[in-house]
Design a protein around this nucleic acid. Structure first.
Lengths: 110, 110
DNA sequence: AAATTATATCGTAATATTGCGATAAATACT
DNA sequence: AGTATTTATCGCAATATTACGATATAATTT
């Protein structure tokens, strides 16, 4: 008995959590901040900036790509990664819904 | 060599990732959805609704509380948990910044 | 063709998370 | 006082994540 009961939750609950989980590591936030501040988005820049190895960065990039938070296009020997702003809007919408539906509720406590 | 290099990242990067990580599990999304839709927020309601045991629910509640996404007040033998809408706004602001700063950037690729 | 550069993947180890039953702790009820 | 109810915590097992070095892959340059 250990982990992963994801099949017992709704598709929506899984989809939402997968998105947020992808942002749940400081290295991945650092990657996003870098992509968002640099015009060129050559990935190997990150080696040297981040305090983790190339292999680990590649792994984090894949997780961000799997969650469709970044997309990559091949550019010679390197791969150009960019942010997918649409996903941020999706997350904003989800959080906004959490916030509004909650505030509409007159709670009996808290 | 394994996990946790959080001391090598900035406090901001850690803070942001801790918040999103807390939303990175379907059970915790289900808890939030329930809190947001119910006027009364008695916690033991969740046992029976969620496909996980009381012990596991309690653990997830603690993680949400640690991240300050929910707060709890004692109410007799039970504890009343409620959402902290402020935190959602914090997350929205972060995502909005990601989005805007990225869109301001004219990328050379993608 | 050989060397270089950039990225991905494999294998492996360390660590963290998830989940549960059992049990503790604390308040309410009889 | 004794019993029920609700929540938290402990101990443990199963899984997942994080991280790295080594190696593979693929395009570029010499």
């Amino acid at each position: 008995m250990g982990a992963s009961k994801s099949d017992q939750f709704t598709a929506e609950q899984n989809d939402i959590s997968i998105l947020f989980k992808a942002l749940g590591h400081p290295a991945r936030i650092a990657i996003i901040q870098h992509l968002m501040n640099s015009k060129s988005c050559i990935c190997n820049d990150l080696v040297g900036i981040l305090p983790i190895s190339q292999a680990t960065i590649s792994q984090h990039l894949r997780e961000l790509k799997d969650a469709e938070i970044i997309k990559g296009t091949i550019d010679g020997t390197s791969i150009c990664y960019c942010l997918n702003s649409n996903v941020f809007q999706t997350m904003i919408n989800t959080l906004q819904e959490f916030k509004t539906l909650d505030q509409k509720n007159t709670k009996e406590c808290c």
